[in-house]
Design a protein around this nucleic acid. Structure first.
Ligand SMILES: [Zn+2]
Ligand SMILES: [Zn+2]
Ligand SMILES: [Zn+2]
Ligand SMILES: [Zn+2]
Lengths: 145, 145
DNA sequence: AAGATAAATAGAAACTATTTCTTTTTATAT
DNA sequence: ATATAAAAAGAAATAGTTTCTATTTATCTT
């Protein structure tokens, strides 16, 4: 599995460094979105020397390359999620445990039509995220931070 | 028109101060979303003494009260928009001129169904914004910052 | 396999949007 | 008019994020 992570980097013409592989590995093992600081904490367990700017830089590069997606959060901090689904889709985010799940519903065509017909405008992109409780958390009904 | 702005404040049990009315008036006159600093600049033209924290505080209070809506922007800064439409709806945002327009399409029920049936989860809220070029900007095809 | 080269990283420092704090002022109810 | 609690000024602090420079490292070339 470390193999296919390095392929991700090579495809982006990024050098395959231990730090980059570790960042990917950390996110690959998570079903949740993580912030730079959270990733940094885990990196410090793996490397004796690891700078926070390195984490920021790599997360951003990987997001720009499409390997990670940015999670839009009401707190306006940076969060990233490694999503293997390369098709256009949206996400359901559990506000209790931070788990991310793919959604297949997307109103792109309806939006496109409405913007074209009613507003006479042109759609470039759209953002959709759904917040709620995942199956486990809905069962527990306990909301943590 | 100043009258119905003060009603908005009274409904929220907020004191009707000149600063608050001015902030609302500034946003009411705009079809675009504005950031705190942009609002502050305009406030400084109206008041000899006006603090930036006052602008921040009021914008946030008004957003919490539902009078303003927060615009989610890729730059992760704060932006507000005064929307008179109190029904649930979403927005089309022109990335060229920052104009905001209401959309009527909303996939809430489809999302709800998908989350319930496929993920066995529970939807609490959803966020949708559409980015593009408004009629005027699409015609001009010139994208400013 | 060793050297060359450009990219990546560490660590410190800077940045800046946003928030907090304390004092003074002001809107509103009595 | 007075009392009271909310609002605002102004300064200061915060914290997430970005920038900078010197050093290290991955990868390409021979
Ligand atoms: Zn959950
Ligand atoms: Zn979509
Ligand atoms: Zn426009
Ligand atoms: Zn909706």
């Amino acid at each position: 599995m470390g193999e296919d992570l390095s392929v991700l980097l090579k495809n982006l013409n990024l050098k395959v460094t231990p730090k980059r592989l570790a960042i990917l590995d950390i996110l690959d093992a998570e079903m949740r979105y993580l912030g730079p600081d959270e990733v940094w904490q885990r990196m410090k367990a793996r490397f004796k020397s690891i700078g926070l700017p390195t984490v920021y830089r790599n997360l951003e590069e990987l997001a720009n390359g499409g390997v990670l997606i940015k999670i839009i959060h009401p707190d306006r901090k940076l969060y990233y999620y490694l999503c293997r689904n390369t098709d256009h889709h949206h996400h359901f985010i559990c506000i209790s445990c931070k788990k991310v799940e793919d959604l297949f519903f997307c109103g792109a065509s309806e939006i496109e039509r409405e913007v074209k017909n009613n507003l006479k405008g042109h759609v470039i992109s759209h953002l959709m995220q759904v917040y709620g409780l995942c199956e486990d958390c809905a069962a527990t009904k306990t909301i943590s931070t």
